[in-house]
């Protein structure tokens, strides 16, 4: 059997159609990613709960050297303490303003702000790039907005680490278990080769508790609540204060807000 140029072009045309319909699917608002565009508002309004965090740096800045939130998280989630910055695992940590908000700092701002370490964690974005790129759905977005992980499904390809513009993701480069100071049997430990990050304490929310960092913060700098309830604590605070978010220009819609 022979094939001439014309029938070849037909085949190419048809396969191009096939490929483009596949590509269309990629660009479609998926179930795993929050809906884009017009569907977004509708989709988002349907959910009764959308968890969010407000970090009030005005309260936090006076507590120099305080690590209560970080320690609480470490304890609750069996986070290893690895000294090597290349291997470390961190769910909530401190970073100076110019590094936390690299696009919006300037040298003339108050020294106090420049020197204050900001509290950083996963932003639990509305449009999380990590969820979009994960090839196994090991990272997924829950209806309440939390970007969660299935540690048993993660293959450790680290596509999510490349995709996250906030540096919120960690691979367990080595077996983390020997580096856990005190094991909490209520929460799983992880194995080497899987990625992990802040989970907004889904396991505690399920029991009606606040996230561990919020509970540990004695100065009231961390506020956790439902963004979809107009009368919630976070909405009240956001209504009466100017807030900023990290890298909003990327369209990820972070759900961690900062008051400065």
């Amino acid at each position: 059997m022979g094939i001439d140029r014309r029938s070849f072009l037909k085949i190419v045309g048809l396969s191009a159609l096939g490929v483009s319909s596949g590509a269309w699917e990629v660009l479609q608002p998926g179930e795993v990613d929050a809906a884009h565009g017009h569907a977004a508002a509708e989709h988002v309004e349907k959910a009764a709960t959308r968890w969010a965090m407000v970090v009030d740096m005005r309260r936090c800045k006076d507590e120099k050297g305080c690590t209560k939130c970080i320690d609480a998280c470490r304890l609750v989630h069996n986070i290893p303490v690895i000294d090597n910055p290349k291997r470390e695992v961190k769910w909530i940590w401190k970073e100076e303003y110019e590094h936390a908000f690299p696009d919006s700092h300037n040298e003339y701002m108050p020294d106090e702000l420049k020197e204050t370490p900001f509290i950083l964690m996963c932003n639990h974005c509305d449009h999380p790039p990590c969820v979009r790129v994960c090839p196994t759905k090991a990272t997924f977005k829950r209806p309440d907005g939390i970007v969660a992980m299935d540690y048993h499904r993660c293959i450790g390809c680290r596509f999510c680490m490349a995709a996250c513009p906030y540096g919120s993701r960690n691979l367990n480069w080595i077996n983390p278990r020997p580096y856990i100071k005190e094991i909490n049997n209520e929460f799983p430990t992880r194995m080497k080769g899987v990625v992990e990050k802040c989970n907004f304490c889904v396991e505690r929310l399920a029991k009606g508790l606040q996230p561990a960092c919020v509970e540990a913060c004695h100065c009231g700098a961390l506020l956790f609540g439902n963004l979809h309830d107009p009368e919630s604590n976070v909405r009240r605070v956001l209504r009466s204060n100017v807030s900023i978010r990290r890298k909003p220009e990327l369209g990820t819609h972070p759900c961690v807000f900062y008051l400065v």
Binding site: G22, P135, T136, A138, C154, I155, C157, R158, V194
Partner: peptide, 28 residues
């Protein structure tokens, strides 16, 4: 690709849980 995976034994998860929104799925 296999050498780069943190958990290479779970490689087949890419087929077990096909995810068209991931470019890695298409690359495979």
């Amino acid at each position: 690709i296999i050498a780069d995976l943190g958990q290479p034994m779970r490689l087949m998860n890419v087929l077990l849980h096909p995810t068209p929104n991931s470019i890695l799925f298409w690359d495979m």
